[in-house]
Amino acid sequence: MLSPEVLILLILDGAILLFLTLSFFTAVLIVRYFDFSKDTPLQYYLERRSYLVSVILHLSFSLKIPLLFYFVYTLDKLSNVIPGAMCAAGVITSNSYGVALLAVKVLNIYLFGLWLVANREDFFTKEYRFTKFKFKFFIFIYLFVVGEFILELLFFKSLDVSKVVSCCGVLFDATKNSTLFSFFLLDSKLSAGLFYLSFFLLLFFRKKIYLFSLLTLIFLLFSLISLIQFFSPYIYQLPTHHCPFCLLQKEYFYVGYLLYTFLFLGTFLGVSVGFKKFFLTKEDKSWPSLLFDSLYLLVVTFYPVWYLFKNGVTLF
């Protein structure tokens, strides 16, 4: 597939990869030779390179977020040319790399974010306390970035305009146990119940930082499942429409952007408090995370409540 959007995605991700590869070599050097007590030219050089990596990561991170949305936009646009696909969901499941690619893309944004948290803490200590740690962590992240790029190449290479794919109506249809998403197919009401339960657990254990971080991951998982299974039909006002991508379209007032921003920000902050405590020995409050989680919960809860209020019945 050679559409301008695909080309741009590949070029920008390629540029990011190029600069991260540069950073990777710096990271290896720093992990091996960094020693703040020394007064050698090498040490000064490494300290300065550390800033370069920090700039690159900042820029990559701030580019990766819009690129994720742009990726979904590209898929939406490609759904016009791929027979059967009505939105991004059809395109992404049209070959076996799509779902993994999207997952890695989201994961990488989380990882970049955590790296920047570590970087910030490092620059706030007067003795470069976390420099070695953050570069070890970077080497770990780098592997995922390479993985993402390979997956992206494979994904776009194997997109086939002549193959008929399923639209989101089929993909998320609970009665036809058909697709990759079968993992997500919990009963609608059950998924909603687990979603609210995990939120209350978060609220309850907000002081126990490690548990809180762990629960945040569970909350994220149930949020996504319940969004597909329970909430999205209310948003679309159509009991059979279960797609997590159509939310981003104009017909639904772009509510998806709001929802995903709240959800990802909230859960990122949740993971980051645990990360900070464990690796950076810094205690942070969990309330910013809870705030965004709650905002997400409020917006998403609004839809079934509103539906009930208007129509007097529930969908499930």
Binding site: I8, I11, Y70
Partner: peptide, 11 residues
């Protein structure tokens, strides 16, 4: 325009 922006500014 977003496409144009992405191809010019970040690079």
């Amino acid at each position: 325009f977003i496409t144009l922006f992405l191809v010019t500014v970040p690079l």
